[in-house]
């Protein structure tokens, strides 16, 4: 059975908040259908369930939101073409693993490109700059932000200061230790304790 050269998916799905979400799989080139193809309904459901978390994971690897989104699309494209042979309970892990390898391939290509630019004398600085302030709000829900805000308020002042200086002001632990006049191990310990409390608070909500 032959498949069309281009296949476009556009589905309406409901996310957990109940808002409709347009899922656009863009254009997928299929040379031929295989026995490992996954049906589009299942793919759409998996997209709604895991796309946000997958994107956050890829941002952690790539430090670039647009590249992360490209990798999400590539991963789901592979899920469509090859995900049929994966057990249902393993599909999430399979999806993340595929996305991770896709991200590593992107990083290798970036490294090659950077070397090329350096050789021709151009600015080889990476385009990646981590989470931009205006993109941060797209990564977490309002409920998560409210929960973190409450959890931050409950932290001791010394722990809250370290979290703020590291995550918001982007200072290194060495600089934080110098400014607060504490050993660097103490700064790391305060950060670790604070993050544990924040994570536990979020998981309990």
């Amino acid at each position: 059975m032959s498949a069309p050269a281009h296949l476009v998916f556009c589905r309406q799905a409901v996310d957990r908040e109940g808002d409709s979400k347009q899922i656009n799989f863009a254009r997928l080139r299929m040379a031929r259908s295989t026995a490992n193809s996954l049906d589009s309904d299942t793919s759409a459901r998996l997209y709604v369930e895991h796309a946000d978390e997958l994107r956050r994971f890829l941002i952690g690897v790539l430090r670039d939101a647009p590249l992360a989104q490209d990798c999400v699309q590539a991963a789901f494209a592979k899920l469509l073409t090859h995900g049929g042979g994966v057990r249902a309970e393993s599909r999430k892990a399979w999806l993340f693993r595929v996305a991770y390898h896709e991200a590593l391939a992107v990083r290798r290509r970036q490294a090659v490109g950077k070397r090329v630019l350096e050789q021709v004398g151009k600015d080889g600085e990476s385009l990646a700059s981590g989470i931009q302030n205006d993109a941060a709000e797209t990564l977490v829900s309002r409920e998560t932000i409210d929960g973190v805000r409450r959890a931050l308020a409950e932290l001791p002042q010394n722990q809250r200061d370290v979290v703020r200086m590291r995550m918001y002001e982007n200072k290194t632990f060495r600089l934080i230790a110098a400014e607060l006049d504490i050993p660097i191990g103490t700064a790391l310990a305060r950060m670790r304790t604070a993050l544990k409390k924040l994570r536990q608070r979020l998981e309990s909500e």
Partner: peptide, 17 residues
């Protein structure tokens, strides 16, 4: 992998707060 995704979410939420 999921721990990394949570770390990214936590950082984003802390930044916004």
């Amino acid at each position: 992998r999921e721990a990394l995704a949570k770390a990214v979410a936590l950082e984003a939420a802390v930044t916004i707060c």
